[in-house]
Nucleic acid binder design. Structure first.
Lengths: 155, 155
DNA sequence: TATAACCCGATCAAGTCGATAGGGTTTTAG
DNA sequence: CTAAAACCCTATCGACTTGATCGGGTTATA
């Protein structure tokens, strides 16, 4: 289950991706349009800003805009920022790898082997689907997916 | 992330699958062998019993055995019993479907569409991988996967 | 210089997770 | 018959997470 927060983040980003690139959207407008608690959305947009996904202008007539092209922001990136590692087991995450204290040799772990396949499939979808794909309601261009080694680097 | 409880359940079932079919294993033996808190394991095995995965004999020289063939118990079944729905969004689960209160039309939901693909891939792996596959350290026979409609029925 | 708007940390209620506690019930050995 | 072994069941607990709220602080513009 992805968190409510991640859902909010994706909805906000999709709203930003649909808006004209040069006109910032107000937090309150996004909040109202997407039925997101405003103060909660502020936190989320701030996270996304710190991670270089959006940019903000302060003061009167400020607001948020996408910093990257909608075709270059993947669902995987957003989920990792908001929810943390995507991998189903800590020992399968490269951004937050932790050995399973109670397991034996990783190479022999049957459970790890099965969930490694799940992680691979999940990454294949999430790291290749962009905001642009989502808006266009189309399947992502699979060639966009980072080569497997590099993907593994950020799961 | 799958829960620790689900990991324990899978480890216990793999231990049972490896044992001779007619000789029950003691909770305490499994607990010791797999480094699982005994009382916690009791709860887990009880759940698995109620769901028809294992059977138990009470009293002296009692214990647990697999009720089904190791080739007929999938990771998906076990995870659903222990952790609940596998689907990444409540609106994608058929065993515990809940409409997203704050979303509009489901057919138009871009997020749902993306995660529907994730759910599909995840199910394809988890519903086709059995305890037998895990023990043999081999990829599952994909033909074993339930036809998509039926799979959807139990996500 | 007033106001709009983002920035930021603290806090909170409810729920979940992993685990423990304390027995009750059934079966078998002797 | 009875004691011991082993499963059965419910309640509870502390730590953590989640979703959200609060109260301001800072910055930029008209």
């Amino acid at each position: 289950m992805i968190s409510q927060k991640a859902k909010y983040a994706l909805r906000a980003l999709i709203a930003l991706a649909r808006a004209p690139r040069d006109k910032p959207l107000l937090t309150s407008d996004i909040a109202e349009g997407q039925a997101i608690p405003k103060k909660f959305l502020e936190q989320i947009l701030l996270d996304l800003k710190h991670q270089g996904i959006v940019l903000s202008r302060r003061g009167k007539f400020g607001g948020y805009q996408l910093l990257k092209d909608p075709g270059e922001v993947t669902f995987g990136q957003v989920l990792r920022i908001i929810d943390g590692p995507i991998a189903p087991l800590p020992c399968l995450s490269k951004i937050a790898y932790r050995r399973c204290a109670d397991c034996g040799e990783e190479a022999d772990c049957e459970i790890r082997q099965v969930f490694a396949r799940v992680a691979e499939e999940t990454r294949r979808v999430l790291d290749s689907t962009t905001l642009e794909d989502a808006i266009a309601s189309r399947a992502p261009d699979l060639d966009r997916a980072t080569p497997s080694d590099e993907v593994a680097e950020v799961v």
